[in-house]
Design a binder for these strands. Sequence first.
RNA 1: CGGGGUGUGGCGCAGUUGAUAGCGCGCCCGGUUUGGGACCGGGAGGUCGAAGGUUUGAGUCCUUUCACCCCGACCA
Length: 419
Amino acid sequence: MRVSQLFTKTSKTVPGDEVARNAQLLIQAGFIHKEMAGVYAYLPLGLRVLENIKNIVREEMNGIGGQEVSMTTLQPRDIWEKTDRWDDQKVDNWFKTKLANGTELGVGLTHEEPVVDMAGNFVHSYKDLPFYTYQIAPKFRNELRAKSGLLRGREFLMKDMYSFARTQEEHEQLYERAVEAYCRVYERLGLGDMTYRTYADGGIFTSRFSDEFQTLSEVGEDRIFVDEAKKVAINEEILTDENLQKLGLNRENLVEKRGVEVGNTFHLESKYTDALDVYYVDDQGNKQSIIMGCYGIGISRLMGVVAEHFSDDKGLVWPENIAPYQVYLVRIGGEEAVKHANALYEELTGIGVDVLYDDRDERPGAKFADAELIGIPHRVTVSDRLITSETYEYVARNGGAATELTRHELLVKLGRPNN
RNA sequence: CGGGGUGUGGCGCAGUUGAUAGCGCGCCCGGUUUGGGACCGGGAGGUCGAAGGUUUGAGUCCUUUCACCCCGACCA
């Protein structure tokens, strides 16, 4: 992509109505556009990051056998009444709307009911189980207060997966396999070291804890207590002596931290399947309840967390796995430089390297500043003064001094990275 | 939803005791520049969030309302 063709621009000034660092940087660098509080559009650069995150999540979910679907945002009232989650007294952050004939609809905030209703069309026998299904889709929640840029929005992108099992034992296996996949996702995003599996409130099921995945962050909304040695944490909301004992944790080993919830997995037992009258028949011909789990990852929130964390005073510093482009190619100088830069751009693009080519007629300082703000991992400069030596300047965004590389050395360094 | 704050060209902001708006950046034109956000000259662009009121006169005072930010509460 040529920067001259990119319709978005960077800004020299920080947006006045954002305090959250992730939102400031992402808006300034032209990754997102604020439509209203808690509602952001993704611009070309931002969408590429979002797609990269989605693909990592998708690969991991597919890796454990998840079957991707796309459910609807418009929701019929009846299935939610069967589980008693339609009433605003029960679930207060519904967005609701109406058909022209007055029929009330819900705007999807989660999808347990629809996924169960849908699965019920196909699941009848023990032979049809177990399975996982998931989607990556927008969610709408009427939050009383949107805040912190991408970290808490009213419209956001979420991956939600649901598991259907025949027995509790089978469910436990599915659940742990999903948790392991979650850990791999955070590893691949570069958040592994600072993300803790955290025991949290089980929601409707007090008998059981849920697992949150909390990335340590000063801007986090949750207070968690981390056991560094065991690499687990417990959410403040369930921090009682009884629970600590149940979990085998010792209060002395816990350190209080703030975290951003980047994932949450729940045991749903058979609440939704029973309520929606979805059962299976076992090999004896007996009707049995289906045990469910649900597993959420906030995709757009993850983008915010990464932006919030991987940045410096000059701008964003994207991890290679999710960077919008791998290489920021800066062209400095006259006709010769144009010729060489164009050739390098074609060559890199030709071998599958994603290049953002700054072909603008701007001064070097402006290009370098934008390169740093946008935060692409590798910066390569083609300039008049390097043409005679047949070299390119290379500098990594995440630090290190600039070096001069020959064409061959450069190609080796930029060989398409394995995601 | 309670409390606090803020709305003025595209962006960031200033605007005193009321007198029909200004700066920086950006943008357009011309010229000079070209390895760390260039410089000079010229120019376009705003019914001051909205509605109502007070006043000879309102960006400024009053009322209502909308939006945005922060703290808290809330967040399957």
